[in-house]
Structure formats: C-alpha cells, structure tokens
Design a protein around this nucleic acid. Structure first.
Length: 799
RNA sequence: GCGGAGGUGGUGGAAUGGCAGACACGCAGGUCUCAGAAGCCUGUGCCGCAAGGUGUGAGGGUUCAACUCCCUCCCUCCGCACCA
C-alpha cells in the first residue's frame, strides 16, 4: 500500500556511506563540476531554509553526476561565533564542546535528508588546522600592508559587547541582535578592502550568471561616484577646504559651504569668534546623536554659522562657512558646496537659515528670472546661466568643460569617491580566530612567525558576556616572549570577525587536509571556480564581497589564476509560514525532522522543489507535502504493475519527459520538471509501462527522491547504484507525431480545432478549414481576407 | 530619492509573440466499502440553463495574434540612502 520510507531511507544512507559513493577525486581526464551550498552555522538543528538550500544543491549535484561529470559536493561548518559563547554561559559548558556537539547533531540531520556530500572533505572553521590558515592569510595581508591597525570611531554593539563592521550595521542596529549601535573610539585591525574597490566593481561585469539584484547590491555597496574636488580657499589664509561634488556644473551657484561637524578644520575656524560657543554646543549635540537619528530622512536639517568665510575659486566670491548635521565626515571630503537652487537639501537649508540663492541652470523650455520664484530646487538638466564663460552651454557638456578648466587652473581635481570602507575585523570575543600579533614594548607590533602558527585558542576563558576581550584575562595566552628581542611582550587579545573564516572556505574544500598552505594550488586549479554556488540572499553583500576580495588577494599572491570565485550564483527564496518568515519568536517554525518522520526525506525534498521555483519565496503547506508523498506512492504502484511491452504512446510520453526534464534540471526549474513527471505518471496510469520505460523514469526522478529510486532500481533488478547509471537520452524521432492538432482562430479567437497529418500541404489545409462546418457561421458570409498558418500550431483566418 | 524583483483562478504556480491557467493543493460528484481511511475515475477561472460572453494590476499602442513587445500610470516586496 505505502512504500516503507523509513526502512528504505536508512538502508540507502548506510549503503552510500559505506561505499563512499560521493567521494570526489581530482581526475584531469574528466570534466569537473564543483557544486557548493553556503555552509551553515552549527546551531544544532537544521531548519527549513537549510533543507531548501541543500535540497536544491543536492538535486543539481546528483543530476550532474548522472550526466557524467566528476562532481565535488562538500559540506562543512562555519563554527566560530557568538552563539557558542552565549550557549556556553547559559549551559556552563565550553564553547568548543557545545560547538562540536552541535556539529554532530547537524551532521546527523543532514544525513537524514540523504544529501550527497563528500563528508571526507568536511571542515569546521573552529578547528585549529583550519583557523591556522586564517592566521597565515592575515600575516600575508599584513606583509602587503593590507592588514593595519587604526584608531577611529567604530561601531559598537553594547549588547554583544563588540565592534561591528559597517556591513554589519543594519538600519543603525546590530545585524545580529538589532541593538542600537553606538560610536566608540578604539584601536582596531582593519583589512584594506578599499585597495580592491576598482576591481571589485569592474569584475562584477564578469559575473554573467549572478542574479541582477545581487550585482546591483554589490555595485550599490561599493558606491562609486565621480565628480570634482573643488578647492575653496579660506578667507585671509592660505589654507584650502576641498569639497566634493558630482554637479560641478552648478559651481557658479554655490552660495555657501557646509562642513561636517566633525571636520578637523572646524575648531580652528571658530576659535575666538563670537560664534564659538554656539558651534561647540552644536558639535556636542551632534556627537551625542546616534547615526540612526542623524540620518533619518524626515528630520529637519540643523546647522550653525562658523563666523568664517571661504572664497569660491571660480568667481572669487566670498561665501559663508556653515556646519550642519546632514554633512557626513565619512563620505567624500566631509565638506560640500551648497547650491540651493539645484539641490533640494541645500534648498531647504538655505530657506531655513535665510541664505542666498542663485539660479545657474535653466530648464530648456522655460526661463527662471529669479531664484525667489522657485518653490523647490531644480535638479534636472538644462542650459548654463550666470556661469561666466560657460553661459549658454548644455549643463552636461559644461560638467566636463568646467572640470577640465578647473584642473588646468589648479582649483579643482577630477575625483572619484567610494562608499566602500575598509573592513574592521577586530572582535572583542573569545570564540574566534586569534589575531596573530604581538605587542612588544621594545619592537612595537610584531607578527607571530609562520612557524609558530597556529596561535591556539586556550581551551577556555572567563567569558561572562560583560565587556572586554575574554582572552585578555588568560594570563598564559597574553604573556609571551617577543619573537624579535625575546623580551616580555603581550599578545593581541582580539579575535577575527567570523566573516574572515567564510571568505575562503570554498578553496579549503579543494584540499581540506593540506598542510603546507591554505590550499593545494594544484587541487584548486582543477576544482575552482565553484561552478554553482547556492545560498540565501542575506549574504548578497557581506559574504560574497569578502569572498571576492580574498580571491583577488590569492590571485595577487599568484596562488590561483582566476579572479572571481563563483561562476553561477543562485539565491534561493525563503520558506514562509502563513506569509511570514519562520522564527522562534513568532512560534511558526516547522521542524524538518518531524516532517521526515511523518513523510520521509524523499517526500520532503519533492515537495520543497515542487511548491515554487528556487528563487521565489515558498509558502509552507503541509497538505502539499502530503501530496508529494501521495505522488511517490503512485510511482511505487507502477512498479507493481509493469507490462512486458510499452505502448508507443507511452514511449512518446517518456521521451517528451526526458527532453523537458533534461533542460529543466540544468536550468534549476525543478517545479516544472516535477510537473512533467506527474504528467508521465498520469499517462502510465492509463496505458501502463514496461521495465525499460520505468527504468528511465526512475533514473530521472532519482536526483529528487534518491532513496526511493535506489530502492526501485534494486527491485527492477539492477545491481549497481542508480547513480552509476547514465542519464537517459531522448530519441528525436519519437517526439514527432504523425498527426497534429491545429488550433483554428477566426480573427484571433479560438473557434475550432482540427487533427491533420503533420506535413499537410498548406493548400490542402486551407481547403479543409474553409469547409469546416463549425467555422462557417463565424465567416458571416464574407470571404477571408488573409489566412495565417503557423506550421503544426495554428491557423488564423482574418475576415 | 536611487537601484533591483514582482503583480495571472479559492491557493502554490505554468505559459517569453501562437489554445491563458500545465502540474498540484483545495472543493464537488462518482466508484469501491457494512462503514470509514486509502486508492481509482470525473468535474472545477468568472458570468450564463445554454449558445455564447468575458478574463493575466489600470489605461493606451504595435500585431493576423499580446500574460509575453512598446508607452503612460498604479500597487507590493527587497537593497541602499541627508552619499554631496
């Protein structure tokens, strides 16, 4: 009645493991396929998101295997990170023990899903033979000036008690716990990702097989903008203030300039001026404001006059210098020229503080006689006015001309600014990779020698979750001899951000046990790039950007000869319940494990692929899972009723399915592939199938329901694993039907259908159609004006 | 504001110039059964008894033919954002 999924799934999982069916080995005579899914954080339980991600990957991997590729499909664990510390505090265990237990539990759950991983390649980032290479990479970066220490205001999460990278601040809050992020002055380690900004941007063009939106997000994040740095000279001084603008065509309309409150010049500017007190007060107020408040778009722009003036270099006009909260120190030069007539923010600010306005761009179709008539800034294109020798020019042209003119006169410089900042990687946490640096009172900052790697994490530390680096409290860890002078020195006690760990793991999988370097160059040459990468959209910026950065760094080290790590990228949609993301707090979590218990892993895999295309969100529907299970039972019953010969019609249906499924699988259209399996099943239910037809069907279904199909394969009498079988090929002759059904339209509307021989002559066809009784009344006695024939599809008669 | 993805039955979705709604879920009816479950069969966009009409966010256009291409607009989701 029902197939025994529990027995079957356990049986095949054991067999696969025992026979090392999924072991991957480099073989230069075979075409490789490296399929990778984003590795999980070992929380101890897999969730539906994992199930979806890994099922998509598993089907692709098994399909490629059947197609004859040498497939590598590895799995590992992104095992460092804060939850381990929290759990350890709560359960009074060590993070290392908690993490290893979670990894074990997750392995078990992943294996229950029947995923085809080469477990011999498994890596965990918290093992010292992995993080040793984090340290190695860090040292290489340090040697090349790409890792450096800097004191600056950093993002600080008061709840996690640690720093955050810019990328980890979401809407002013911590990406993990959403606590409002504070600013704090600290000396921290940074990676100079900005050195790669042009390449990171430029090479996005190579990523033809990435989703548009991911490319857009990366592009956005790097944030290149081109314009001109203009040098405003301070009145009665030789000092200049560079301001950045993308609208140099509006320079003649600049009526004041604005500095960020943190701008280093401000204190000098106001010294002994009557405005000093007010300005200092304003600076204090802004410093107190969190960035969240300050950048909220609906907040009124506030600012104060500094009492100083600057000279606009294009017309020697004296303009007041203000400071305002809407100018940010971290972007551009931290100073802007304000053109209230052509920038809406400047417009509002000028109105508020009664600053002068001057129109310098007129729309093509009307003239603006006075700035007073403007009710908002005119930000569009037009013709230059009040712009000296540039009057009358089209503003786009003026942009280039003015920029060149300013460069020639030495009053400006064509300049490009980026939004991308260097990557802050120091974390005041215990459970992470120790940064391999030593501070010596005599020699300064000294890198740990390569031969002393790894700098091992002590087995435990007094981490309470309350402030400071826990490693700083471990005397045996901190106190060290200086590698240079052998004097007493201190270790760095911060650890690396965990995104460091995941920025190169795809390379480690190529040679996970290699002892001389992060990866074996020869193995990487064979396996890389990753042909298909699959993961959540939440990693569209951080993880993918960092991985691209590391790859370019390895290229510069001449360890690899490619520049991008991931050829194709698929970002799978989320799994929703009642229209919402599954989460503990909403209490709407569906546990994969209980679904496996009730319906089996194969049914779960089938449902999750059938319910929606991979990139779209998927609404969880247990009835749908029941349906998947019902379908598998239907297929099972075919095997119990095989005939000795198959109908020609069934054979045709099979070959149609082979054709459809082959393309659908390679395009990740699993939902429609499954629909054609169902259609084929419906045909077989009417007409029956023989062993040959059913065997091909089972092979095609096996990537989706591997245990189920292995079992059927065995029942059919085959000895070897179904995954050694060749993917079926369709016979084009069987796709050609003798007779075809043509649709007949009158004036584009469906009026009749007709079955005719495939190669019927057009004349004959016309004759046949015009005699059709069903159609005659639609002709209304008139004769056809035109007859359009689309061979083997339709006829449209225009009356 | 900028950028990206979308809008199709009661639901998930299919069709990328050629029969709109494949395939499923749900629902209705039938069959089997003492009965139920399971299975199997049939029907199912909407209006209409029917003939037929109508229908892919709205409006316009191109075409013999438009969910699909073009124009105008509306809405939803996602990313970035006082970025100069």
């Amino acid at each position: 009645m029902h197939y025994d999924f529990k027995k079957i799934e356990e049986k095949w999982q054991k067999k696969w493991a025992k026979a090392h069916v999924f072991r991957a080995q480099a073989d230069s005579t075979r075409k490789k396929y490296y399929l990778l899914e984003m590795f999980p954080y070992p929380s101890g339980k897999i969730h539906m998101g994992h199930v979806r991600n890994y099922t998509i990957g598993d089907v692709a991997s098994r399909f490629k295997t059947l197609e004859g590729y040498n497939v590598m499909h590895p799995m590992g664990f992104d095992a460092f990170g804060q939850p381990a510390e929290n759990a350890a505090i709560k359960n009074k265990t060590k993070p290392v023990d908690w993490t290893h237990k979670c990894i074990k539990d997750m392995e078990t759950e992943l294996k229950k899903m029947g995923f085809s991983y080469d477990w011999e390649r498994e890596v965990s980032t918290c093992d010292s033979d992995y993080y040793k290479w984090n340290q190695w990479i860090f040292l290489k970066m340090f040697e090349r000036g790409l890792a450096y220490r800097k004191a600056s205001g950093v993002n600080w999460c008061p709840s996690c008690q640690t720093t955050l990278a810019n990328e980890e601040v979401i809407e002013g809050g911590c990406w993990r716990c959403h606590t409002k992020v504070e600013q704090k002055d600290l000396v921290q380690w940074y990676l100079k990702i900005t050195e790669y900004k042009e390449r990171l941007l430029e090479d996005l063009n190579q990523l033809k097989n990435w989703p548009q939106r991911v490319l857009a997000m990366q592009n956005n994040w790097i944030g290149k903008s081109s314009g001109v740095d203009i040098y405003f000279r301070l009145e009665n001084s030789d000092r200049t203030i560079p301001v950045f603008t993308t609208r140099v065509d509006t320079i003649f309309g600049a009526t004041y300039i604005v500095l960020a409150p943190e701008h280093p010049l401000v204190l000098d500017l106001v010294k002994d001026k009557p405005q000093e007190k007010e300005v200092l007060q304003f600076m204090k107020k802004v410093a107190r404001e969190s960035k969240l408040v300050r950048t909220a778009s609906d907040v009124k722009k506030e600012g104060v006059f500094t009492g100083s003036f600057a000279i606009n270099p294009v017309n020697n006009e004296k303009v007041p210098i203000w400071i305002a909260d809407y100018v940010l120190m971290e972007y551009g030069t931290g100073a802007i020229m304000a053109v209230p007539t052509h920038d809406q923010r400047d417009f509002l600010f000028a109105k508020e503080h009664k600053l002068p306005l001057r129109v310098v761009i007129e729309p093509k179709d009307k003239s603006i006689s006075s700035a007073a008539e403007l009710s908002e800034a005119y930000e569009g294109d037009g013709r230059q006015v009040n712009s000296g020798e540039f009057n009358g020019l089209d503003n786009q042209e003026a942009k280039t001309r003015i920029a060149q003119w300013m460069e020639a006169k030495g009053i400006g410089k064509i300049q490009t600014h980026f939004r991308l900042r260097d990557w802050l990687i120091s974390r005041q946490r215990y459970w992470g990779t120790p940064i391999p640096m030593i501070y010596c009172p005599a020699c300064g900052i000294v890198p740990v020698p390569y031969k002393d790697l790894p700098v091992e994490l002590p087995a435990s530390a007094p981490f309470t979750g309350e402030g400071g680096s826990p490693l700083g409290k471990v005397k045996k860890f901190v106190e060290v001899k200086c590698p240079k002078c052998k004097g007493q020195a201190r270790r760095e006690t911060d650890t690396m951000a965990t995104f460091f760990d995941s920025s190169w793991y795809f390379l480690r999988f190529c040679s996970p046990k290699f002892n001389d370097a992060p990866f074996d160059v020869k193995e990487a040459k064979y396996w890389m790039m990753v042909d298909q990468y699959i993961g959540g959209i939440e990693h569209a910026i951080l993880h993918l950007l960092y991985s691209r950065f590391f790859t370019k760094f390895f290229q510069d080290l001449k360890m690899i000869d490619f520049t991008e790590p991931f050829d194709k990228l698929l970002t799978q949609g989320m799994v929703l319940k009642d229209g919402e993301v599954m989460s503990k707090s909403k209490g709407n979590i569906v546990d994969p494990d209980s679904m496996i218990k009730n319906y089996g892993a194969d049914a779960l895999r089938l449902f999750i692929l059938f319910a929606a295309p991979p990139e779209t969100e998927l609404e969880w529907e247990e009835r749908g899972l029941e349906g998947a299970y019902k379908f598998l039972n239907r297929v099972w019953r075919i095997q119990e009723n095989l005939k000795s010969n198959a109908d020609l019609q069934v054979l045709r249906a099979l070959h149609r399915t082979i054709k459809k499924v082959s393309t659908d699988f390679s395009e990740f259209k699993f939902n429609t592939a499954i629909a054609s399996f169902m259609e084929l099943t419906n045909v077989i239910y009417q007409l029956g199938a023989d062993k040959k037809v059913f065997s091909d069907f089972v092979i095609m279904l096996s990537p989706i329901a591997p245990h189920f199909c292995e079992e059927l394969w065995e029942i059919l009498g085959y000895n070897e694993s179904i995954f050694k079988a060749p993917w079926p090929k369709f016979n084009p002759e069987l796709l050609i039907e003798e007779n075809v059904e043509l649709v007949i339209q009158v004036n584009g509307k469906l009026r009749s259908k007709i079955e005719v021989p495939r190669n019927i002559a057009e004349d004959k066809l016309k004759e046949l159609v015009l005699k059709d009784e069903k159609l005659i009344s639609w002709f209304e006695g008139k004769s056809p004006k035109k007859i359009i024939i689309v061979p083997q599809k339709l006829i449209n008669i225009v009356i």
